[in-house]
Amino acid sequence: MRRAVIFVLSLITWLLLALPIDIVAWEIHWANLIAGIFASLIVALLFDEVFIKEHARAVNPLRYLWFLIYVPVFAYYCILANIDVVYRAIHPDMPIKPGIVKIKTDLTTNSALTALANSITLTPGTLTVDVDFENEENILYVHWINVKTTDVDEASEIIAGRFEGLIRRIFE
């Protein structure tokens, strides 16, 4: 089952990369397609253990739907973040107040934590430095370009709050 998931994902990647099916002329390049099937089979056989730990999650269509909602939300905050950083970079006085704060999250799986850490890095003035597990809670150390609060709960709400709900629906 897990191998099947990997096979389908690799084949989709191959189809997008090599385009063996010409959509405009509706023509199929069989040699290309068969090579893709063989390559995906090899990948599925070799990388069984390392790729997805919980394959049942990867086939749930609802997760992909939430992912589609997540993309524009993320893009919006990402653009806001960039305008903010550009403003700080070109302002003559450089209004920065940097610091490393600690936030906690109730996400537990590896993939969800990775997604949260990456989202934090790409959004408003924050950069994940380290992820840690402490007192049965997952802790993230975040470098913040404009520290508004050093309180753990408040900082968690400001930095991670807007993504946690969506990421939980996608990855957990």
Partner: peptide, 29 residues
């Protein structure tokens, strides 16, 4: 434009972490 300002921030910001902020966000976008 974003790439340019990213490099600009990379030069102007004071330490490694602030520079990484400019380098990752602006250059990615």
């Amino acid at each position: 434009l974003f790439d340019f300002f990213g490099c600009f921030g990379l030069i102007r910001f004071p330490d490694v972490f602030n520079r990484l902020q400019a380098a990752t966000k602006c250059v990615t976008l």
